[in-house]
Nucleic acid binder design. Structure first.
Lengths: 255, 255
DNA sequence: CATAGTACG
DNA sequence: CGTATTATG
């Protein structure tokens, strides 16, 4: 059994203050994909660095901004930072760890909520990401792209689909992109294990007590190859932990 | 009996969180001279604005920076913001409230701790301040210049005079300036009521638990005319309140 | 609302 | 150490 968690920490230092190491020691995931570290590698709190995990980070050039990481009990046999597109790689958004019989990515798609310019870059990111990810589907190792895609796919994935139909994160072209990703062969593993179930979200605004009222969005995914979907046995969103504005999305795979 | 308090609040909003209105209602000063408001007038918390005091503020152009105020039970018959020197007035450092038989100033001298440039401006401020204040000594109303002068006068006023003899706030030329102010006729009323008493400070660094170890500086003064010194009956530094890194300096005058 | 950054003290 | 700012989400 291999347990993989994905979590946008909204600042690894803040998540540490909120009990990140407690969560790790109580849940013992084999692999943890982190997004939005908002720290340089040397700023990651020591107690996290001293956990019994191998850690790989791909941080942004800009201090306190973006950045992804992968923690794993096993040491990766290979890692890859970025995808060869300068502005994306400078923002620390895509990181791979390859293991003996599994490839894991931590992905942090840009937010488009701050304006048109960033929304355009978000779409550009998605356009780069799709063919990049596709290549790994035809490889001979199971692959999963875990992360914060900053997109809700379907109305069921957002608490107020009507009000948000023109909001970045639920725009038709963004939702269509997720559909394309699935049509190329990826699987939204969490949804596939919870078909039709409502009120399942992975992010809640800090404002207006959104989390306690469960007014959230499901924007964090395990996008798996078909093989891994078959191996997926249990998928949970760990809403009971308040480590950041996101909840960990954890799936156990029988490999 | 007229009770006048002087307090550097290090942010009126922060002081409010730390119990400013409790302090006011328990002590009921007639006049409160405030320094380092670090807020525009409309940002002063409502509970402070709604106290039974008249308030006058002279804020800095730069947001979140400097600024002085005077709260008084009586309504001032006249007020004066600044002293006619642009850079000083833009920084919100000197404010007057005139009453029937008293003139009160709230003064916030620049800090010189951030470097030579600001230290030079501090000395320039002091050079402007001295003749400005002097004029009021020859007037026919009692006058007091309350505030944070950012200078310790004598070794007795600082916990470690030797180590700080080259530190801004205890430099020979700054201490000499205070001596001159006193020689022109002003009185350091708090000291005059506590001659020779040691370990009396009004400011403690937030660092290194300075306050609980009483490693402080006395840099907040009531600089009074001789008439007011004679009227001064009780002078206290209210160290038991933790409203900011300074303690209120409160003197009761029998006028 | 919250986490970063930086300026200032 | 602590209170502000501003950028970002």
């Amino acid at each position: 059994m291999l347990k993989i968690s994905s979590l946008n920490v909204n600042g690894i230092r803040a998540a540490h203050r909120h009990g990140f190491t407690d969560w790790v020691s109580q849940n013992k995931p084999d692999i943890i994909c982190l997004q939005e570290l908002r720290a340089l590698e040397h700023q990651v709190p020591d107690p996290i660095q001293n956990m019994d995990y191998h850690s790989v980070y791909h941080t942004a050039e800009k201090k306190g901004y973006s950045g992804v990481g992968i923690l794993s009990r096993e040491k990766p046999i290979q890692i890859q930072k970025g995808i060869g597109v300068d502005w994306i790689d400078n923002e620390g958004r895509i990181l791979m760890s390859e293991f003996e019989d599994l490839i894991v990515f931590s992905v942090y798609a840009p937010s488009g909520t701050t304006g048109d310019e960033r929304q355009d870059l978000k779409m550009e990111f998605l356009d780069h990401f799709l063919p990049f990810a596709q290549k790994y589907l035809s490889g001979n190792k199971p692959v999963v792209f875990c992360g914060d895609y900053n997109i809700c796919h379907k109305p069921i994935d957002i608490h107020n689909p009507k009000r948000n139909k023109n909001t970045s994160g639920f725009l038709p072209e963004e939702r269509e992109w997720v559909t394309q990703l699935l049509e190329t062969g990826f699987e939204d593993a969490y949804r596939r294990l919870h078909e039709g179930e409502e009120d399942l979200y992975s992010w809640w605004s800090y404002r207006a007590a959104s989390k306690e009222r469960n007014k959230g969005w499901r924007i964090d995914y395990h996008m798996t190859c078909p093989t891994l979907l078959e191996a997926a046995e249990e998928a949970v969103i760990e809403r009971e932990w308040d480590l950041s504005d996101h909840a960990p999305v954890t799936i156990s795979y029988s490999i």
